[in-house]
């Protein structure tokens, strides 16, 4: 049996019929074809599926689809403005080579965005803490941490 939910993803409202036990990550990826959030473990251990839900970062594989009813979701696709301007986080991830295979990157960038939303001037330690649940096997994290610090710096410059 399926139930109706409606959710706003990256500013667009969607009405979807979901199985009550389905997860937000599968609704996004399979039903809405918003495939930025990746599924690395489906158990909340890797952070690849991180999205921002009502202002807070969540592992979308741990959110039941009905829990997303009426919620505002931002995925990696939502960081880019309509005119194609990228978020400083995206720019810096590209410039600092913080992206290798790219599979963890959407979750990593969304988690970084969630951090900078509440803490625009983080220390390196705070960045590492915030990203401690997002696994990356390619980079050793240094270029990721540097990218987040650079993005924060850039946003500060723009203030």
């Amino acid at each position: 049996m399926k139930i109706p939910i409606s959710l706003t993803v990256n500013g667009d409202k969607y009405d979807v019929m979901v199985s009550p036990l389905s997860k937000l990550v599968d609704v996004l990826r399979d039903d809405l074809l918003i495939t930025g959030p990746k599924k690395g473990c489906a158990e909340g251990e890797c952070g690849a599926c991180t999205v921002i839900m009502d202002g807070k970062p969540v592992s979308s594989c741990l959110v039941l689809a009905p829990q997303a009813d009426g919620k505002e979701i931002t995925t990696i696709e939502g960081l880019e403005r309509e005119d194609g301007t990228l978020d400083p986080i995206q720019e810096e991830f590209m410039n600092s080579a913080a992206i290798q295979c790219g599979y963890c990157s959407p979750g990593m960038m969304i988690m970084s965005k969630a951090l900078l939303m509440v803490n625009p001037h983080p220390t390196e330690e705070e960045v590492r803490d915030a990203l401690s649940g997002n696994l990356c096997r390619c980079t050793g994290y240094q270029q990721i941490v540097d990218a987040v610090m650079a993005a924060a710096e850039k946003e500060r410059g723009g203030e």
């Binding site: 990746k38 410039n95 290798q100």
Partner: peptide
């Protein structure tokens, strides 16, 4: 140190991996 090819696709969520395909 040019930016990696594919970085834009990956940074914007456009990069399609096999699990993303339907």
């Amino acid at each position: 140190s040019v930016a990696a090819s594919g970085a834009w696709e990956k940074a914007t969520g456009r990069a399609q991996y096999v699990p993303d395909m339907k």
